[in-house]
């Protein structure tokens, strides 16, 4: 379920301190999301692609991830040009293709692609365990961090349990259809998964208490930023600043 195709590697990006990467990724995403002009947006897309190249991401694997989002973007390209209103770029029979709608769809597409590629390059290039530890060290709320880590740990087990049950149902000749029997079977399946998760959660809590757990978690890993990390962070700071200038600079002078 969680294959982490980018998590391991020896690229320049992989060796940057995870905490720096997370902070940069978040700031960069916000700036890009708030940008509206095409010059900074195109710039951001190029920067994201450069980051992906620096992280030596396999283009095919990145494309597989992008495809999911491109499905949503296709929907936007269909809806926005037809619903945004005059002036029209062109007319197809009774319908008009709105200029503002096309521009908006283009902006959204550029932002989405740039942010997604950048997140893949900076954040998906660390194992989830590292992400959790790094989040803990940049003082994110402990409970949220452990929610992430525990989800990662146990969703896999839940999926196994789900697959096992589905297999057992199929082996007994179940064929889903549009009928009460199918709905009832699915309801049992989901209900059983909930019940098992609760039982599992209780046993995990017991096991933790048996090892002296008293509501406090500890992080073992110490990240030490290398000189390369500082150089990279400084560079990214300049780039983010440059994107911001391209967007908001003209308003300032």
């Amino acid at each position: 379920m969680f294959d982490e195709p980018f998590a391991t590697g020896r690229s320049f990006i992989h060796r940057i301190d995870p905490r720096h990467r997370i902070v940069i990724a978040v700031v960069y995403s916000f700036v890009v999301a708030l940008t509206d002009r095409f010059a900074p947006l195109t710039g951001a897309l190029i920067v994201s692609l450069a980051l992906a190249a620096l992280a030596r991401l396999r283009p095919a694997a990145v494309w597989r991830r992008l495809k999911v989002v491109f499905g949503f973007l296709a929907l936007i390209w269909i809806v926005l040009p037809l619903t945004t209103g005059t002036p029209f770029l062109a007319r197809i029979g009774p319908m008009g293709i709105s200029t503002a709608g096309v521009l908006l769809a283009a902006r959204i597409s550029l932002k989405t692609t740039a942010i997604l590629i950048e997140f893949t390059a900076l954040v998906a290039t660390m194992p989830l365990a590292t992400l959790g530890h790094a989040l803990g060290q940049i003082k994110m709320p402990e409970k949220l961090v452990y929610l992430v880590l525990m989800t990662y740990r146990y969703i896999h087990l839940l999926e196994n349990e789900y697959q096992r049950t589905v297999r057992a149902i199929r082996l007994r000749g179940f064929l889903p259809g549009t009928n009460m029997h199918t709905y009832k079977t699915y309801a049992y399946l989901i209900g059983m998964l909930f019940v098992r998760s609760v039982a599992r959660a209780e046993r995990i809590e017991w096991a933790m208490r048996c090892r002296g757990f008293r509501g406090r978690f500890y992080h073992l890993v110490d990240f030490v930023p290398t000189p390369a990390t500082w150089i990279f962070s400084a560079m990214m700071g300049i780039i983010i600043f440059w994107i911001a200038i391209l967007e908001w600079g003209p308003h300032l002078w």
Binding site: I204, A207, R211, G212, F213, R214
Partner: peptide
Amino acid sequence: LLFQDSDDQLFSPTVLDDVAFGPLN
């Protein structure tokens, strides 16, 4: 107590994290 199902017992991301969990507590 060694649990019947080790999946109940091992909840930390890595092996070292999990073994260090008890001593930290």
